[in-house]
Amino acid sequence: MESRTTQHASDAPAYRSHSGRNMRHPLLLFAALPIALFFVTVAWSPPFMLGSFVEWLTSWQKELFSFACHQDTSRSFILNGVPLAVCTRCTGIYSGFFISLATFSVFSPFVKSRNHYIIRIFIIMSIVLVSDGFANLFDIWQTSNVTRSFIGLVWGISVGTVLVDALTIPRKHH
């Protein structure tokens, strides 16, 4: 009995505050959240840091995300004449990922109580994201930038929720 309790506590090593309230897994607070914050900040930063489209072309933000996104300007949000560092779909993904991590790391009981649905929602949203991406790519249909960003946002939220689920719910020992 004792060992069972210890196993769960050590696999998901939640911090315990003085009030006894469970806090989050250190990887969530010190790895996943900062990574998500970094990506979302860099993705949104060009319009606020760069003065022109040409500056954007040679910016480090564009260079960084060139490994992850097609960065087509006709499929990107443009503020003050400067595009974001990623396309609308990726903007949604990074924003949704950060929003869900920030929200559900605070409200993780919500995730714990619904973890049966989380993987299913993630799989369904992955199918939607990939289908829409390929349909746009092969010109089967064209969705608007707002729709693309919305699909990305919901997928990003589902990925973040899966991550919170992974870091807060203890694994079973086979």
Binding site: S3, T6, Q7, S10, D11, L27, A31, A32, I35, F38, F39, L64, F65, F67, A68, V162, L163, A166, L167, P170, R171, K172, H173, H174
Partner: peptide
């Protein structure tokens, strides 16, 4: 390194969650 390193931190920890089990010595 930043892009692939950080993205694979996430995929690595998810893989450990779904493919691995808690270490015996923690029991």
């Amino acid at each position: 390194a930043i892009m692939y390193g950080l993205l694979n931190v996430i995929s690595g920890l998810l893989a450990a969650k779904f493919m691995g089990t808690p270490p015996e010595e923690e029991l």
